[in-house]
Amino acid sequence: MQPNFSMPLRGIVPPLVTPLIDNETLDVAGLERLIEHVIAGGVHGIFLLGTTGEFASLSYKLREELIRLSCGFVKGRVPVMVGISDSAFAESLNLARKAAQYGADAVVITPPYYFESGQPELLEYLNRIMKDMPLPLFIYNMPVHTKVMFAPETVRAAAEIPGIIGMKDSSANLAYFNQVRYLLRERPDFTFMVGPEEITAEFVLMGGHGGVNGGANMFPKLYVDLYKAAAARDFDTLLPLQQKVMQISTGIYKVGKFGSSYLKGLKCALSVMGICSDFMAEPFHRFNDPERKRIEQVLEELNYQELL
């Protein structure tokens, strides 16, 4: 099973937020504006239904609608990857089939969550699900939410399963990255991308292929330029871009008090910028006026119009 894009996939792939009007209604106009915004910024792909897309809080009906509309808006201009993570094996496959039906290019899966899996169980799970998988698959290492990580040796073994073409790592652990990269040293075609944008530049400098960065929803060109500078080892260009990324991280993502503050800040900023609604799926809620005013202030301090 070969992807219809060159491997390894390189660059910036924003994990798209899911614009919502309410818990069961997509902000369709906002979704289209957001997709046009990130494509105009030069991104190298789009990732639907990841952590930033609030997948675990969305109904299956809404997930299917998001895939259908997004693939229609993208029109094949960049690869579309769809998160199919679920605690139920059958639901992951059902979503993968919907993704294939609507024209997505690949799917992305975390370890099944709730009960913690052993590494042999993870490999068995991947082998079983790939027998019926209609699209190439990226594994997604997200131990903070799934309670289990893909051990480096498991990643190496998974890379030998037909149809598994890459990995997104959100562990924020560069030592882990180096272990995985060493074990995959004879697989230059296997895509390896990082989630946390704060370490994307270091990751690319160390041989990683790019970033699945939430901030690219807001400022796609900034993150694309960051990637290009790191790939070219152009430190004079890279350092001020990294400063902007850290300003976003410490400003927009830290306004709230809880684990959801990253996503609340991101969605609020997109709303302030006029791109899409900031409604959050239950059990979360959008920022109130005091927090929104703080986000507006951070955007002004960033001179955000210059980043577009």
Rank of each mutant, 00 (worst) to 15 (best):
D27V: 01
T51V: 11
T237D: 12
P240K: 09
P143W: 02
V298C: 08
I165Y: 02
D189I: 01
G11Y: 00
Y227I: 01
K168Y: 05
F284V: 06
L49S: 03
S87P: 08
C268L: 05
V38T: 11
E306T: 11
G211I: 00
H44T: 05
P196Q: 11
G72Q: 11
P220T: 09
V224F: 01
M280W: 01
R128K: 14
N4V: 11
A158P: 04
A96F: 00
Q247K: 14
F219G: 00
L20N: 04
R77S: 14
G76Q: 07
K98A: 15
L241N: 02
P111H: 08
L307G: 05
N213Y: 03
G259W: 03
G72E: 11
F115S: 14
Q243W: 12
L241W: 00
N94F: 06
F115C: 14
Q2I: 11
F138I: 02
S92L: 01
E116F: 04
T191E: 05
Q247P: 07
K257L: 13
L222C: 06
E282N: 09
A159I: 02
M130H: 06
M130N: 06
K254L: 13
C268S: 14
R77C: 13
M1L: 15
G11I: 00
N4T: 15
N23Y: 04
Y113T: 09
M149H: 15
G195S: 03
P19G: 11
G103P: 03
V155G: 05
A40I: 09
G83V: 00
S92G: 12
H37G: 07
L49M: 09
L26F: 06
F219S: 03
S6E: 15
M206P: 10
K244G: 07
H285Y: 10
T250G: 14
G214C: 08
L299K: 01
K147V: 13
V108L: 08
A100Y: 01
M1W: 13
P240N: 13
V38R: 00
V194A: 12
K244T: 13
P162H: 09
D27A: 05
F47I: 07
F47D: 04
